[in-house]
């Protein structure tokens, strides 16, 4: 659960964006600014409990504390700037459907990696992207998927002594997957 927790409030935002505007995503921006301020407050509290100063010198909380203060000030400054209308137009709007499909497929792949093993899950992942997303022919999709799953797995294992995950299901593991 990395900093994901801290970002949790932000990461929901892209899905519910205002429709069809190519201008600056104002609501997304305000939400991010609020989240950054919240993050700064959280880190300040954490840093204080870690200890700012010890008998050896600066403590574990010293640096994070300074950073949290900086983050708070900067976020407020950013907010003030955007209120003052000093913002320029933002970057091009991403294709959210495409982004969501890629993200979900990656999350599913990562979730299945330890369960089904690398070979099965990567095969499914590649087939999905090649056959259905990229709309390639069966032959090419199959060849590439097998190469990317079983081929990479064995290449890494034999050639590089690097072990990619094997399946946790005994039946599949027994088949060498």
């Amino acid at each position: 659960m990395s900093r994901d927790q801290a970002y949790a409030n932000q990461t929901h935002v892209p899905d519910q964006q205002e429709p069809q505007t190519h201008a600056t995503p104002a609501r997304l921006r305000t939400a991010t600014q609020a989240a950054l301020v919240a993050l700064a407050v959280y880190i300040t509290v954490e840093a204080l409990s870690l200890g700012l100063w010890t008998s050896f010198g600066p403590g574990p909380g010293f640096f994070p504390f300074a950073l949290a203060v900086a983050l708070g000030v900067l976020s407020v400054a950013w907010f003030a700037q955007s209120r003052a209308g000093r913002e320029t137009a933002a970057a091009e709007r991403p294709d959210l459907r495409h982004a969501a499909v890629v993200l979900v497929s990656l999350l599913v792949l990562a979730g299945l990696l330890d369960l089904l093993g690398y070979q099965v899950s990567m095969f499914l992942f590649l087939m999905f992207h090649l056959k259905w997303r990229a709309e390639r022919g069966w032959a090419l999709s199959l060849v590439l998927s097998v190469a990317g799953s079983a081929g990479v797995f064995h290449g890494f294992e034999q050639g590089l002594l690097v072990q990619l995950p094997a399946s946790a299901i005994p039946f599949l593991a027994g088949l060498g997957l």
Binding site: L106, A110, L113, D114, M122, L126, H129, R133, F156, L164
Partner: peptide, 25 residues
Amino acid sequence: PVLTALILMFMVVGTYTINFTVFDV
């Protein structure tokens, strides 16, 4: 589009092999 699929595979393998945990993925 084909390259994208292969790049995604590349990135998953690359991150997994840093510490051999799905967590990094």
